[in-house]
Amino acid sequence: MILLKLFAAFARVGVLTFGGGYAMIPMLEREIVDRHGWATSEELMDYYAVGQCTPGVIAVNTATFIGYKTAGNIGGVVATLGVLFPSFVIISVIAGVLQNFADIPAVKSAFAGIRVCVCVLIFNSVLKLWKGAVKDKAALALCLLVFVLSVFFQISPVVFVLFCAAAGILFTKLGVRGK
C-alpha cells in the first residue's frame, strides 16, 4: 500500500514539475512533507542536496532517496518509476504526434523560431550555473579548458568528468582552491 502511495505521490510531483531542479521543491514539500509526512522540510533539503551532488538527474536522485527512506530499496525503485512515469507517457504522445507533423512548413518555421529561444534558455542556465560553480581562478581555468577542448575536439564528456573530478581533488590537496 505504501508503495502505491509512493508511486502516486512521485507521479504527481513529475506531472507538476516543469523543468526539474529547483522547480521541483515546492511540489516535493506539498507531497512529501505536508500530505504524507514522510520527511521534514529539513530532511527534504538534505535529500535534495545529496541529489545534487551525486551523478544523474536531480529529480530522479531525490525520488530514489525519499523512496528508500520511506520503504527501503523497493521504495526507492518504486518512487523513481513514479517520477519517470508521467514524462514517459506525455513525451511519447507528443513525440508521436509531432513526428506526423514535422514536414509541414508552418511547423518547421515554428521550430526554427523555438531553436532561437532554446539558445537563449541555454545561455541563461549557463550563466546561472556559472555563478555557483566558478568562484576562483582554478575553477575558471577548468571551466575554460573543458569549454575550449570540447568545442574544438570530439572528446567524450565522460573524459572531462573524470579528469575534472581528479583535478578538483588535486587542487584542493594542493591548496589552490579558493584563491
Binding site: C119, S125, V134
Partner: peptide, 28 residues
C-alpha cells in the same frame, strides 16, 4: 566528495556552454 564536486561543477558549465554553442550555430 566535496573536492571532486569542486572540480565537477565548472566542468559541467564548460560542457553545457560548448553544447549550447552547437545550438547557436544552427539556430542563429
Amino acid at each position: 566528495v566535496d573536492a571532486a564536486f569542486y572540480g565537477l561543477r565548472p566542468c559541467s558549465v564548460g560542457l553545457i556552454a560548448a553544447a549550447g554553442l552547437l545550438v547557436v550555430k544552427i539556430a542563429l
